[in-house]
Structure formats: C-alpha cells, structure tokens
Amino acid sequence: MLKDITIGQYFPGDNLIHRLDPRFKIVMTLLYIIMLFMGDELYSLSFGIVYCIAALVLSKIPVKLFGKSIKPLLPILIMTAILDIIFIREGTVYFQAGFFKLTEDGVFTAVKMIVRIIFLIIGSMLLTYTTSPIQLTDAIERLLSPLKRLHFPVHSFAMMMTIALRFIPTLMIETDKIIAAQKARGAGFDSSKLRDKAKALVPVLIPLFVSAFRRAEELATAMECRCYRGDIGRTKMKSMNAGICDIVSLTITFIMFFAAATVAVLF
C-alpha cells in the first residue's frame, strides 16, 4: 500500500524536458507556479495551463501517472471547493436555502482553485519525474550557493535531502514490515477511533525510529569509508552546463510569465 506513493519518484528518459539543466528547470517551475496564482481571471490562468500542457507533451510521461498522484489529494480539493462555495456570497445568486447561497462568484472561484491546485501538482511532479534526485539536490545546492557567504551549510543541506530521498522507499517498506509484525503479535490497527489509531502508532514508530538511527550510524560509517568529508575537495560526476536549449526555454518561460502578468494587470 505504501509503495504506491509516486511523489518524488524519477522516471529516466531522454527528451528535451529530461535534458534541461536542472537549475533552469527549478527556476522555470517557480515562475510557472507564480504564473498560476497571478491574476484573478481565466485569461491569465490559461497561460499557466497552456505552458504546463506543452511541457507535459514534451516530457512524454504518461498522463495516467499524474492521475494516480492526484487521487489521494481529492479530499483536500473537494474541501477547498466546498469552502469557496459556502463563504463566497457575491455575484448572481443561482440558488438559496436559508444561510446557504450558491452564487456565480462562489462556483467560479471554486473551479479556479481546483484547476490551480491540480496544475500546481502536475507542474511540480513534472519536475521530480524528469529530474533525478541527485540532479535536483545538486541544482538546489548550486542555486543556494550564494548563501555560503552567510555561512549557511548549503552542502550539508543538499546531502541531507539526497539521503532523505534515498531512504523514503526503504523506510516505507520497513514500516509495512513493522505493521505486519505488530499485527502478528496481536496489535489492532483496525479500530476506527482516532484515539485507538494514535495509540496503535506507538509500537510502529518506536521500532521505526530505532532502526532509522541504526541505519544512520551505519550509513555514516560507510560514507566515511568512502572518503566523504563534506564538500572539501569534492567534484561531481554530472557537471551542469547550460546550453542553448536551456536559455531558449527559460526565455520562453519569461515571455509567458510577463504576458500572463500583463494580462493579469490589464483585465
């Protein structure tokens, strides 16, 4: 069950989106997210949508995968929509029953919010699906490198992220195993009461933490054995070189961004 989670997974491939410089990809994703939330009208939102669909087509990642990742977030989406519909009371009234008022603005805002969140998720997934975790953390390390002057431990931060991403599946599988082991000893995970559920977590979390600390210690020793000493004298196998493709893509992103901004201001 826990293995189904696809967030943060990488699908190797070889096409324009995969080959883009990860630093550029991160900046473009940020611009895209701002683009999505800029302006209030559908005109400005449509720029983000078109941009995202274009990137999606170029990446050749099956749309089905995104559906799978969005599914667990459905309750949040529905909640957001309901809150928008209940609390936005302006605009043409379609239907009224006591306090509840279904208005044009309410429905409109709800739809926009859902579209925005869905595209926000698709956009950020596209980044992690097409960029290997190492590339991603390397890119973050490089983008944040000016902070080194302020003595911010940029390298350690990036290494921590690398290790965290590496151990997500390992710890997931381990959690499954511990749950199975505790069930075999008669622990009940089936009660629907919140209190019982919280209680049942204790015998899962404690062994999980103990094992995680043990893993951390062994990993630290193994890293030392492989001559790790922070970023002192360290090189990278995959160097990042921005090419024409990256610059053109970023330029297109900027053009879209400013077009969306202009539309947002004008309308």
Partner: peptide, 16 residues
Amino acid sequence: VAAIVEDDVAFGPENL
C-alpha cells in the same frame, strides 16, 4: 547513499 545506482557508484570518486 544516492537514490540512483550510478549516482551512488560515483559518490566515492566524487569525494576523491
């Protein structure tokens, strides 16, 4: 250490 096989194999040489 790393989440992709080849990146992990590169870890040692990178440290050197």
